[in-house]
Structure formats: structure tokens, C-alpha cells
Write a protein that binds this DNA or RNA. Structure first.
Lengths: 236, 236
DNA sequence: GTCTATATGAAGATAGAC
DNA sequence: GTCTATCTTCATATAGAC
């Protein structure tokens, strides 16, 4: 029940069996809120818009959540919960690096495709200064980064990964994958396709993998095709 | 006078020598608007905020620009003008690919650093559906992409560039560089530095170059350092 | 041509009905 | 416990003063 943590629930004292409408409505509101906040921002969103999507009177939203800002926070926190856990387990020091990275990249791209509004919501928030997610950024996210950086460093210590700044590499993986949600309309306009196709998202993964692969190559398989006749052993 | 194109100037019929306050005030307003719109979005921005920065009464803004939306459009269009021209000349088929790419990447990062609000303004706009920049996306930007893609394809035809999707590679260059403006607070939180240092931005460039370099390697210089003793000639 | 006081409208929150 | 009518605030835009 991650989303309940921030919810201003009006005294759920006695374990009432009522609240059937509540259990149905609250997640519905959160979904609609994620969509609307993600595309229109906090200020750009009217509670009535969310209400209309849910087909409920706008007052009800303020009944379930105390205020517009509270709803915004609840929506954000539900999102952040999914986020990290989703891609976190892909990278570990014992797995094959390239397999792990491919899984990570595919997971991030899949998220951008499946829940673009979520990605956009977070982007909107960070873009606007990220005041609502300061704790998250300085806490959970920093820990998440530290874990992944440690893995990269381990690989580099073992000599199986090229010397590249681990943190900035992560930044590039984030931005490259999330942009397929955040900059979606830009990409659609450039590619002249709405929506983007399966093939487009596959190409996205392939392109990222092509850039990442040489970091692990002995020496550089895949950079140029049809070229397997080269020195395959490295100095280590 | 790019910004005048969208400006609702009230009948500048007779070539009046007045407008001295105008010439001083209008750019000032546009600068303040770029900042405010970029960090708070269209809806999140109050004309009074912009007015306060410029130290003028808020009514004046509506005098110079017809409406809030008109000011927003003017701000956007001034930004887009700078944008493409800025990095456009770095890539050309006769230059050395890696030099060109380094120039391009450095220019984009420099822009992210020098004018982060501008980058954020554009990001906000695209994130929100990009309705105000549809023409730009489907016109100038698409042409810009076509030019660069053509160069990449030429390099690939010559066999000096690895087979990677040119458009998606561009996407990654954009997202990777712009994120240093758009996701600035996130990066600052992760790196625990505010603001980011010269070194951080240098590392950003280096990291991107490390990923891009193998695309042009004979066969893969730079992927792992201290390893210049390998086959330097390719099959072509 | 430049600036200011006022009107108009919209959206969030509250209090009270069911 | 759930929902709705009303209040209040606040920001844009207008009209008119200087």
C-alpha cells in the first residue's frame, strides 16, 4: 500500500467494511492524476479534468485527498516506488555485464513505452526544481546510484569494463531511455510516425547497446559488422 | 529581429523615434520570460513574476505582448532560432567525424550550461504535448535531422562509421546533452554538488565521446586504454 | 505611446446536506 | 462515510488615464 502513505485519509478509525467506493475510486483517481499531472504539470492540471476522467464530481477528489498538492504528492510517491525497483535487479556484479545492461536498458525503454505519463510526471517535477522529490533524490536515488556505480567499478577493477565515469554513464542511460517517453512527440514528429512502432523501440535498444557494447569488448566486437577477424585477446 | 516576428506590436506605422523604453524593455521581458516559463511552465508562470524581475508593472507586459500566450510563443521562437544554428555547423561530411562530433557535443553541453532555462523551456513544451512547436518540429527540426542523418549515412557508406541508426544516435546525443540542463537538480542531488563544476561538464563530454568513439575506430581505439598495439587497418 | 485601476472569470477549498 | 453547493481567492485581460 505505497500510495496510502501520503494519502490524507479522514480518520479510518473503526475498521469499517464500507469504503467499497473508496477502494475503487482512489486508484482510479491516482491513475488519472498521473496522466494529467504528467502531461499538463501541477499548475496546468485542473481537478475537474481528473474528475471528468474518473466520472466523479471534482469535490470528491478533495474528499479523498486533502488538497491538490496532496494528490500530486501521492501520485509522485506511488510512481517512485515502482521506478527503482523495476530496473534495480538487472545489474549485479555476478551476472554477465552485457546481459545485465541489455536487461536494464530494455526495462527502462519498456517503462517509457508502457507508462510515458509517469516518466513525464517525474520529468516535469525535476524540471520545475524538484522540490517535492528532494528527499527521494538525496536518499533512495543516491543509494540506487551508489549500488550501480559500485558494480561498474567492480567490473572496471576486474578489467572487463573500459574506464568510463560510472555515474555519468548512468546519466546517459537514464536520459537516453527516458527521452523516449519525455520527448515522445518530438521523436514522433522527426520520424513522422504516431505512435512509434515496435521497431522504433527495438532500434532504440539496439542503438544504445551498440554504444555500450565496446565498453566490454575484447577488443571491440560489434562496432563494425562483418569484421570478426581481428585480435580477440586483450592484454589482460 | 527574430523575436519581433511573433510580437503583437501595436501598429508601428510611422517610423517613430520613440520606443526607447520599448527597445530596452522588450528583450528584458523575453529574458525574464524564458527563465520563468522554463522553470515554472506556461500555466505555472504569473505575469507578475516576470514583471517583478524586470521591475515594471505587470500591465506593461500585456501592452508589449498581446497576451500571456503570445509572450510564451515569442519566447519560444527566439529560443528555437538560436538552438539549431548553434550546433548545426559542427557536423559536415568533409570534416573529421570525431572532431565534428566532439564539437557538436561540446556545443550542446555548453548550451545546457549557459542557458539551462532555455533548454528547460523547450523540454516543458515538448513534455506538455508540444502544441506550440508543432510547426518547428515538423519543419525546421526535421530538416535539421535530415541533414545530419545524411552526413552519418555518408560516413557509413565510406565505411568509416559503424552501422548504427543515425536518427536514434542523434536522439541519444540530444537527450544525453540536454539532460544536463533539464535534469540538473537530479544530477546535482546525485553528485551532491550544487552547482555542477567545470570538471563535471568535462566528464560529461568525455563520457559521451568514449561511447561514440568506437563507432569510428579502426577497429576500436579508446574503448580500453593503453592498448594501441592492435590492427589499425580495416578491410576497406 | 506608455502605464494603471478595475472587471471578469476560473479553479481550489470549505462547509454543510444526504 | 459520501457527495454537492457555495465561497473566496487570484490572475488575466480590458478600458481608460496620463
Amino acid at each position: 500500500m505505497p500510495q496510502d502513505s501520503l494519502e490524507a485519509s479522514p480518520s479510518p478509525r473503526k475498521r469499517t467494511r464500507a469504503g467499497a467506493p473508496r477502494r475503487a475510486t482512489v486508484p482510479q483517481i491516482l491513475n488519472a492524476a498521473e496522466w494529467t499531472f504528467g502531461t499538463r504539470g501541477l499548475k496546468g492540471t485542473r481537478l475537474e479534468d481528473i474528475a471528468k476522467v474518473c466520472d466523479i464530481p471534482k469535490g470528491n477528489i478533495l474528499y479523498y485527498f486533502g488538497s491538490k498538492e496532496d494528490l500530486y504528492n501521492a501520485t509522485l510517491s506511488r510512481l517512485l516506488d515502482v521506478w527503482l525497483t523495476d530496473a534495480d535487479h538487472w545489474l549485479s556484479s555476478d551476472k554477465d555485464p552485457l546481459d545485465g545492461l541489455r536487461g536494464y536498458i530494455e526495462a527502462k525503454i519498456a517503462f517509457s513505452r508502457a507508462r510515458p505519463e509517469g516518466s513525464r510526471l517525474f520529468a516535469q517535477e525535476v524540471l520545475s526544481g524538484g522540490h517535492m522529490v528532494q528527499d527521494f533524490l538525496r536518499g533512495e536515488l543516491r543509494a540506487h546510484v551508489a549500488r550501480h556505480v559500485a558494480i561498474f567499478l567492480e567490473w572496471q577493477a576486474k578489467g572487463i569494463m573500459a574506464p568510463i565515469d560510472p555515474t555519468h554513464l548512468l546519466f546517459l542511460l537514464w536520459s537516453g531511455t527516458q527521452a523516449y517517453a519525455d520527448m515522445q512527440v518530438q521523436y514522433e514528429a522527426v520520424l513522422d510516425r504516431t505512435p512509434l512502432t515496435d521497431g522504433d523501440y527495438e532500434t532504440a535498444v539496439t542503438t544504445l547497446m551498440t554504444l555500450v557494447r565496446p565498453l566490454f569488448s575484447q577488443p571491440a566486437s560489434g562496432a563494425l559488422e562483418a569484421d570478426e577477424n581481428k585480435t580477440l585477446k586483450r592484454s589482460l
